[in-house]
């Protein structure tokens, strides 16, 4: 089963921007409880969308550059990239069904 890969400031471009599929980045930090709540949902989605959408997570505490570059000021934030550009920003804890709607509309 695919798991979201850890992305850091140095690998962000290569992994996310140059990805061949759409790519969902989960910005999180260890102190943030809703981040822990959404993590297992994102993991399940990574399994269900394997091969169609890439999944990664960025610890904003250790990787401030990526968070700043995309103006992240609230976590959890999920940013969905397509062709290297952020297309959809989802802030806060959401249900799996809600997230799937965003993912499916990106694929269609």
């Amino acid at each position: 089963m695919a798991e979201p890969q850890h992305v850091d400031d140095s690998s962000f471009n290569q992994v996310v921007i140059e990805a061949e599929t759409p790519f969902l980045v989960d910005f999180w930090a260890p102190w943030c409880s809703p981040c822990r709540a959404i993590a297992p949902i994102v993991e399940e989605l990574a399994g269900e969308y394997e091969g169609k959408i890439g999944f990664g997570k960025v610890n904003v505490d250790e990787n401030p550059k990526s968070a700043t570059e995309y103006g992240i000021r609230s976590i959890p934030t999920l940013l969905l990239f397509k062709d290297g550009k952020p297309m959809t920003q989802i802030v806060g804890l959401r249900s799996k069904a809600d997230l799937k709607k965003h993912l499916d509309s990106t694929l269609n």
Binding site: A29, R73, S74, G92
Partner: peptide
């Protein structure tokens, strides 16, 4: 501006400020 300075969770987002 939710997530761009508007927040409902101080413990989550305080460190950005």
């Amino acid at each position: 501006l939710r997530g761009r300075g508007v927040s409902y969770c101080a413990t989550c987002d305080g460190a950005f400020f």
